[in-house]
Write a protein that binds this DNA or RNA. Structure first.
Length: 422
RNA sequence: GGAGAGAUGGCCGAGUAGGUCGAAGGCGGUCGCCUGCUAAGCGAUUAUACGGGCUAAAACUCGUAUCAAGGGUUCGAAUCCCUUUCUCUCCGCCA
């Protein structure tokens, strides 16, 4: 959520910033609402003041045993007027709030300006895509041939975009989760949390999934529960409504969760394999930072996610997302893309963003330094990493001509010493 | 799922036959004083949001709101009524 005062005092700046996203938003109706609200507010506050003063006087008179009938009658009318004005103001505020919640974050100056993913900027590469002396197979073929992934039965039991992992496939997924969590907690200083996989609408609003992206999520019928699309939601909202001790920032959390996405607009895309599932596993990194350090924290967080790929020996590149390709809540985003032979290209495996105070304002996450006023925190998060896509990358990049898969050395202890899936 | 109890400021905790309560007291925090060391003592201060005034911006100042949330009764509600949420205890059920 943007600062109402910023929009009010500097609408042109806001408009220009949002235009970079390709979002042309007319702020005039909004500003008119805001103007009207303030008028009504001044009006009603004057009346309330009168009511407070006179009511006090009535109390005094009654205790002195004197009548105050005329005043009571007058105040009865004042109260009626107040009620009408309050209703009007409530209505206006609701409208303003809804509009505000629907406006995306202002892109940071450092984010490359562009229309879509074509304009993303490559920052760096690590590792070399493997050169195969044979025709490499896609991970879905490898997985079925080794009997470690079962897409067919996933479809039977649940539906399209659901998969059974089996045997060493399941163990590989589980081992990766532990490997990632261990690396982030032991080497990068994150505190692990295991969050609820359902969250309510207030939390979904806090991180920006609602109100605009309801159709991307699964909602439990007859309840206020949504299946979380990412652990970002419960973990960031961990501190919703709180005033944190500025001295305790930054807070680093990593969290494993299953993630659930309706993939409403993705029909026909990535239909095969593990790349785009309704349910997938992810280890998420979340940071609550002060306002000064969040940019540095974003760089560090991205490196923490990259580290996993380096330890696994998987080639990747890092992209700075263009303003037109960034998510709704982000001020700046780096995508990490892993090499995927079946796509013959790099494929997103992590997305690391600084939201600045956009989420904190919605979720009311603040901190205080000394005796100072509470300040909105800056929130960040990134995948560290998407586990299913990591499995896909390992199967494809580490495959052999014989159809087996070599397990990266550092992962072997997590698979009971297994060196190869065959 | 059934029965009961509860939700007050950073924390603990008063306050319910409605009126001067943004809210006693304590703890903690901050500033000052005192004491030739740590301690203790004394005094003061210590919420947030929104809107107005002033300002380069603050400070400051005025107003309004906030005692879980929302609604109602009333001239006036932390105090009365209704709804919802959450917490605790007992029973049932269950991993």
């Amino acid at each position: 959520m943007l600062d109402l005062k910023l929009i009010r005092s500097n609408p042109e700046l806001v408009k220009a910033a949002l235009a970079k996203r390709g979002a042309s938003i007319s702020l005039e109706p909004f500003l008119a609402l805001d103007e009207r609200r303030r008028e009504k507010l001044a009006e009603v506050e004057k009346l309330k003041n009168k009511r407070n003063v006179v009511s006090e006087e009535i109390g005094r008179l009654k205790q002195a045993g004197q009548g105050a009938e005329a005043m009571v009658l007058e105040m009865r009318e004042v109260s009626a007027a107040i009620k009408d004005l309050d209703d009007e103001i409530r209505r206006l505020e609701g409208e303003i709030q809804q509009t505000l919640l629907g406006i995306p974050n202002i892109p940071d100056e450092g984010a490359p300006v562009g229309r879509d993913e074509q304009d993303n900027v490559e920052l760096r590469r690590w590792g070399e895509p493997p050169q195969f002396t044979f025709a490499p197979k896609a991970h879905w073929d490898i997985g079925e041939a080794l009997d470690i992934l079962d897409f067919e039965r996933g479809g039977k039991v649940a539906g399209a975009r659901f998969t059974f992992y089996k045997g060493l496939g399941a163990a590989l997924e589980r081992g990766l989760i532990n490997f990632m969590l261990d690396t982030h907690t032991r080497e990068h200083g994150y505190v692990e949390v295991l969050p609820p996989f359902l969250a309510n609408s207030a939390s979904m609003t806090g991180t920006g999934q609602l109100p605009k992206f309801a159709e991307d999520m699964f909602k439990l019928e007859g309840t206020d529960y949504y299946l979380i699309p990412t652990a970002e939601v419960p973990v960031t909202n961990l501190y919703a409504g709180e005033i944190l001790d500025g001295g305790k920032l930054p807070i680093y959390h990593c969290a494993y969760s299953a993630c659930f996405r309706a993939e409403a607009g993705a029909a026909g895309r990535d239909t095969r394999g593990l790349i785009r599932q309704h349910q997938f596993n992810k280890v998420e990194l979340v940071k609550i930072s002060n306002q000064e350090d969040s940019w540095e924290e974003l760089e560090k967080l991205t490196l923490n996610a990259e580290r996993i790929l380096q330890l696994l020996g998987l080639p990747y590149r890092v992209m700075a997302l263009s303003t037109g390709d960034m998510g709704f809540s982000a001020a700046k985003t780096y995508d990490i893309e892993v090499w995927l032979p079946s796509y013959n290209s790099y494929k997103e495996i992590s997305s690391c963003s600084n939201f600045r105070d956009f989420q904190a304002r919605r979720a009311n996450i603040r901190y205080r330094v000394g005796k100072g006023k509470p300040l909105f925190a800056h929130t960040l998060n990134g995948s560290g990493l998407a586990v299913g896509r990591t499995v896909a990358a390992i199967l494809e990049n580490c495959q052999t001509e014989a159809g087996t898969v070599k397990i990266p050395a550092l992962l072997q202890p997590y698979l009971g010493g297994v060196t190869e899936i065959k």
